[in-house]
Simulated assay, not measured.
Amino acid sequence: MQTAIPEVTTEFLEAFAAAWNRHDVDALMSFMTEDCVFESSAGADACGTRYVGSEAVRAAFAKVWAVFPDAQWAHARHFVHGDRGVSEWTFLGTRADGSRVEVHGCDLFTLRGGKILLKNSYRKSRSPS
């Protein structure tokens, strides 16, 4: 007898987004596979900075709130199709120097076994006109 693997839904991604806004790293990691990967929106490599495994991903997620203590992801929209998912959002946060950030972004997810295997993050970069 096979055990059904839970399907990832838009409600799953809504709950993941809510955990980001609560700054709840334990809840976030409950959505991720043990061998998860996070590709951040910035870094030296073409994929941004790549974090592999739950310990590295947990530390990278927590670092976001260290840089932006008031970080929020607003106006989120989500969809799931098969083993892929997308979340679109507006990121809002304040850096330690007091500068505010407000940019649109998205996460592209690869899903496996009812959890997130890969969170590939993209965020717009604003510059003076």
Rank of each mutant, 00 (worst) to 15 (best):
R100L: 11
S125K: 09
E11W: 08
P128Y: 08
Q2R: 10
T94L: 06
F68A: 10
D70W: 06
W89D: 02
A17E: 04
R126H: 15
M1V: 15
L118M: 13
F38W: 12
P6H: 06
G113K: 07
S87R: 02
S54K: 05
S99Y: 01
M32G: 00
W65L: 14
F109I: 14
S54G: 09
V37H: 00
D35F: 01
H81L: 13
I5T: 11
L28M: 04
D107W: 04
D97S: 13
L28W: 07
G48E: 04
D83C: 08
Y122C: 12
E88S: 02
L117F: 02
S127E: 12
A27L: 08
G53W: 06
H75T: 12
E11F: 11
F16Y: 07
S99D: 14
R50F: 06
F38E: 02
P6M: 04
D45K: 15
T10A: 15
K63Q: 15
V67D: 15
E55F: 01
A96G: 08
A18P: 03
H23C: 09
G85R: 03
H81W: 13
D45Y: 13
L28I: 04
N21Y: 04
H78D: 00
W65Y: 10
V37Q: 04
L117R: 01
S127Y: 13
Q72R: 01
G82L: 07
E14W: 13
W65G: 14
N21A: 12
S127C: 13
N120A: 11
L92R: 05
R100Y: 09
E102Y: 02
A56Q: 01
T10N: 10
C106S: 12
V64N: 14
A74E: 09
F61G: 03
S99E: 08
G48Y: 04
G48M: 12
E14D: 03
T9L: 12
V52Y: 02
S129M: 09
A96V: 13
G82P: 01
R58L: 01
T110R: 06
W20A: 00
S99K: 07
I5S: 14
A60H: 13
F38N: 07
G93L: 00
R123V: 14
E39H: 08
P6C: 00
P6N: 04
R126Y: 11
A60E: 10
V67I: 14
H104S: 15
G43C: 09
S99R: 07
T10W: 03
E39N: 08
T90I: 09
W20H: 03
G85C: 05
S129C: 13
T94P: 10
Q2Y: 13
I116T: 07
Y51T: 14
H75Q: 11
C47P: 12
F79T: 14
D70Q: 08
A19S: 06
S129N: 09
S129P: 10
T9Q: 06
P69W: 06
G53Y: 05
H78F: 03
D97K: 09
Q72V: 12
V86L: 02
L118R: 12
A71N: 13
A19D: 06
M29Q: 01
F109P: 03
A62I: 11
V52I: 14
V52Q: 10
A19K: 05
L108H: 01
D45W: 10
D24Q: 08
K119H: 07
G53T: 00
G53H: 06
F12Y: 01
H81D: 08
V8P: 03
